[in-house]
Design a binder for these strands. Structure first.
Length: 855
RNA sequence: GCCCAAGUGGCGGAAUGGUAGACGCAGCGGAUUCAAAAUCCGCCAUCGGCAACGAUAUGUCGGUUCGAGUCCGACCUUGGGCACCA
């Protein structure tokens, strides 16, 4: 009898699958198609356990669908543009291209031993000119359809390095290299008009039945549809060419609590004042300090500057309000100006208390004490949910007691009727800025001509290729300072012109790769027949961190690709089902250096038992699990796991224990246990393979357990219950080990076990299938079917509760009528004893579930 | 600051509103062995009790229900996102 050797069997069966062409996807009319896709990786150089978990989940689905007769598309590629390649070039010389393609080769080499059912013939990297050239073609088509335009937008500006910084390069408001105070600076940039589709992107969420509710909710909140009032405050006197300040508010019902008008430092009025008044300029410069993230702006100290200008309240010309410039007002949202009602907005009350502005209640709780004075002295605004009824003490429209939503509607109607502004619907979603002042990205294919202006490049000149001869020894965009690359002829008039040097946001690359996989090497972005056949992605799998941006941008792109004729109507929502998986975590092992700073240690360098560092014997501090990261040294390298235990162990482990949407903690003990379990399955099955055929008393019991397991595992796999299906497989293995059944039944059961394990641990399953006399490849065998007749139990155990507490249980025939169950329950000894002679008030019998006696 | 999640034994976790702790890890006891490794069998939430059994228990506090880990409200903690990390 042979022993389980992962190294031998894994290579053998991977070759067998390859030679059978099992995973090569071709269009076929006689099978239903199934497209399963995992979010493609960034080629950082090493695969990590998170990748293993992500791709194993997709692989389980893919293999399960193959066994169920589907024509499966399961591709893989590389999200290959991006900053780390440039950072590597800056740090250690070399070229981003060499770094990236080297990493891709390494990672492909690390991934292949996992035995994934991937059609590698469709592989591409987004930095392949073949791919980004088609992306440029898409860009031109979108430009043509009016989906792309240019406008000013703010970026993080490092005034020392004279360069634009990514948000992650801004640390506590300072540039990561220079340490200089970062400022927000405006630049002319390219934008996708995603806001044109706000309403559609929002309402179409309803149709995404197989998306997690939390992702839909996050997207809905991000799009942020709101109804409010847009109106103007007239200024007491004209200043800087302005006679009014246009504001937008979602709470017009609080208009009588207005205390000031606030404008963004980037508001045209603020800018006009800034040009003439050094004090304003000084304030605006201060207000623009810090990064562009909403988090930085929202959490920054609230700063205000009283312009000295005054506006009149729309309902009362005598009532004058001051105009302040405030750093927390965003020019990008609404009109860049607000009115502040401190009593009912936390930000406004913080601001009002700081600058001594009045605070006046508009409404108080509907029930409760009169003269609610929270706003009078307090620092906390009264902001009840809009669905709560409140009493308006300074209301002007609608009932005295009403909820916030009704009051807003009434206020809008009231204002519209009096010509004070109008009700408008606005979205929080902003247009997608795609310009990046960086080298390692897809060049934006336009030309700047002195006479013709901005001119799209001709399609026959695509791809606009990145030049190879660039250096990263100075900050800034190498395309800008390249001696010749920018020079070109205007596609319209032929005059000497300059290329655009901005490249595209890498989110563009990942917003259509799923469509490209349907015809990965075509000389158009997609091919109609292929897209029509393979789209949509039936199951998309990736991290929850992509819940908003990547998925929203992809939904926009799919719509844009439909508008430009590159995708069929049905692919406007490209992902039929979405699953968001959790991270792989690990403990952190820490000691401290002489200065008390933490020093981290790799798992292989420590002794878990004695909690010491192997080399030095130093005592360790063990910090509970956190996301694996290089800096914390809590990484487990999949390659060493595959080499040491085999791919099947790595695959089984990352799927077991934790539900797939939650984080899973990698532990050495768990990996060890998994390897032992697989060896045990192998041993049990190998013994069975050598048994003589024949029947025995235990046959029926074993086969019933087998059918139950088929049923359970199938149901769990259909609903991403990988951990639960593994638990059922453990239980069935225990049954198979203890059974008294004869050889024939045992072989059937063992072959079924191999099949049920195959999506998770395909190599050992294939080997067992072969030694147990399975026909052909296990990976190609049809999925086992549970016999409904074998699933029915004749009797069942019912717990009996008294007032909801379990007191006894009875065994009854499965089909016993409730009245008889009740009689039986009440005559049960333990029940009689517990009742102590009391008469039950009520008896609840839930058929097949429980009996509850209420006294 | 804002949006979205998650909190259950020593540990990972299971549980269509219906017996809380399946399955696995660790631990403990036993078998096998010259011995060990490997393997096999059994026990294993907490407290009290010799036991039968009783009480407590799903982050905290309240609520709905015959019945709540599950539904509702508030809070605490941890994680994800916040538009130039991918």
């Amino acid at each position: 009898m042979s022993r389980y050797s992962a190294a031998e069997i894994e290579a053998k069966w991977q070759t067998a699958w390859d030679e059978a062409g099992l995973f090569r996807a071709t269009r076929s009319a006689d099978k239903p198609k199934y497209y399963v896709l995992e979010m493609f990786p960034y080629p950082s150089g090493r695969i990590h356990m998170g990748h293993v978990r992500n791709y194993t989940m997709g692989d389980v689905i893919a293999r399960y669908k193959i066994a169920n007769g589907f024509n499966v598309l399961h591709p893989m590629g590389w999200d290959a543009f991006g900053m780390p390649a440039e950072n590597a070039a800056m740090a250690s010389g070399g070229h981003p291209k060499d770094w990236t393609y080297g990493n891709i080769a390494d990672m492909r080499g690390q991934m292949k031993p996992l035995g994934l059912s991937i059609d590698w013939s469709r592989e591409f990297a987004t930095c392949d000119p073949e791919y980004y050239g088609q992306q440029q073609a898409l860009f031109l088509d979108m430009l043509d359809k009016g989906l792309v335009y240019r406008k000013n937008a703010v970026v993080n500006w490092d005034p020392v390095d004279m360069t634009v910084l990514a948000n992650e390069q801004v640390i506590d408001g300072k540039g990561w290299r220079s340490g200089a105070d970062v400022e927000r600076r405006e630049l002319t940039q390219w934008f996708f008009k995603i806001s044109d589709m706000s309403d559609d992107l929002l309402s179409a969420l309803d149709g995404l039945d197989n998306w997690p509710a939390k992702v839909k909710l996050m997207q809905a909140n991000w799009i942020g549809k709101s109804r409010g009032l847009q109106f103007a405050f007239g200024m007491t006197e004209e200043a800087h060419g302005f006679d009014r300040v246009e504001v937008y508010t979602t709470r017009p019902d609080t208009l009588m609590g207005a205390s000031f008008v606030g404008i963004s430092p980037d508001h045209p009025l603020a800018k006009a004042m800034e040009r003439q008044d050094p004090k304003v300029a000084e304030f605006c410069a201060e207000a623009r300090k810090g990064g562009t993230t909403e988090e930085a702006i929202e959490t920054a100290e609230k700063l205000g500057f009283d312009t000295g200008l005054k506006v009149r309240h729309p309902f009362n010309p005598e009532w004058e309000l001051p105009v302040w410039i405030a750093n927390f007002i965003l020019m990008d949202y609404g009109t860049g100006a607000i009115f502040g009602c401190p009593a009912h907005d936390q930000r406004d009350i913080d601001f009002a208390r700081k600058y001594g502005l009045p605070v006046q209640d508009v409404f108080v709780p509907a029930a409760g004490e009169e003269g609610h004075t929270r706003a009078e002295n307090g620092k906390t605004a009264y902001v009840p949910p809009k669905t709560d009824a409140v009493r308006y003490i300074r209301g002007f429209a609608g009932a005295e007691v009403q909820n916030g939503s009704d009051a807003v509607d009434a206020a809008i109607d009231f204002c519209e009727a009096r010509g004070v502004g109008q009700g408008v619907t606005k979205f929080r979603l902003r247009d997608w800025g795609l310009s990046r002042q960086r080298y390692w990205g897809c060049p934006i294919p336009v030309v700047h001509c002195e006479t013709c202006g901005v001119v799209p490049e001709k399609k026959e000149n695509l791809p606009v290729r990145l030049p190879d001869d660039v250096t990263f020894d100075v900050p800034g965009n190498p395309l800008d300072r390249h001696p010749t690359w920018r020079d070109c002829a205007c596609p319209k008039c032929g005059a000497a012109s300059k290329r655009e040097t901005d490249t595209m946001d890498t989110f563009v690359d990942s917003s259509w790769y799923f469509a490209r996989f349907t015809s990965p090497h075509a000389d158009t972005p997609t091919v109609a027949e292929d897209a029509a056949y393979w789209m949509n992605v039936d199951q998309y799998i990736g991290g929850i961190e992509h819940a908003i941006l990547h998925l929203l941008y992809s939904r926009f792109f799919a719509r844009a690709m439909h508008l430009t004729g590159h995708l069929p109507e049905k692919a406007r929502e490209p992902f039929n089902a979405l699953f968001t998986q959790g991270m792989v975590t690990h403990e952190i092992y820490q000691t401290r250096d002489a200065n008390g700073r933490p020093v981290y240690h790799l798992p292989e360098d420590i002794d878990r038992e004695s909690q010491t560092v192997k080399a030095t014997g130093e005592k360790l501090e063990i910090i509970p699990s956190a996301k694996m990261s290089k800096s914390k040294k809590n990484v487990v390298d999949p390659v060493s796991i595959v080499t040491g235990y085999g791919a099947d162990t790595a695959r089984w482990f990352v799927l077991s224990d934790s539900p797939p949407e939650r984080d899973v903690e990698w532990t050495a003990a768990g990996a060890d246990a998994t390897a032992k379990h697989l060896a045990r399955v192998f041993r049990i099955c190998a013994e069975i393979a050598e048994m003589a055929n024949g029947a025995a008393a235990g046959d029926d019991e074993l086969l019933r357990a087998m059918h139950k397991t088929i049923d359970d595992v199938t149901k769990e796999l259909e609903s991403f219950g990988f951990n639960a299906s593994i638990a059922k497989l453990y239980a069935f293995t225990n049954t198979l080990q203890k059974t008294q059944a004869g050889g024939t039944a045992r072989k059937v059961a063992a072959r079924t076990l191999a099949q049920l394990m195959a999506p998770m641990t395909p190599h050992i399953a294939e080997e067992l299938w072969a030694i147990l006399g399975g026909e052909g490849l296990c990976a190609a065998a049809p999925w086992p079917k549970a016999d409904p007749a074998m699933l029915k139990d004749e009797s069942l155990t019912l717990p009996i509760q008294i007032n909801g507490k379990r007191k006894a249980e009875i065994v009854v025939p499965a089909d016993m009528p409730p009245a008889e169950v009740e009689k039986l329950a009440l005559s049960n000894d333990a029940v009689v004893k517990a009742l102590e002679g009391a008469t039950p008030k009520k008896v609840i019998v839930v058929p097949g579930r429980i009996v509850n006696v209420v006294v």
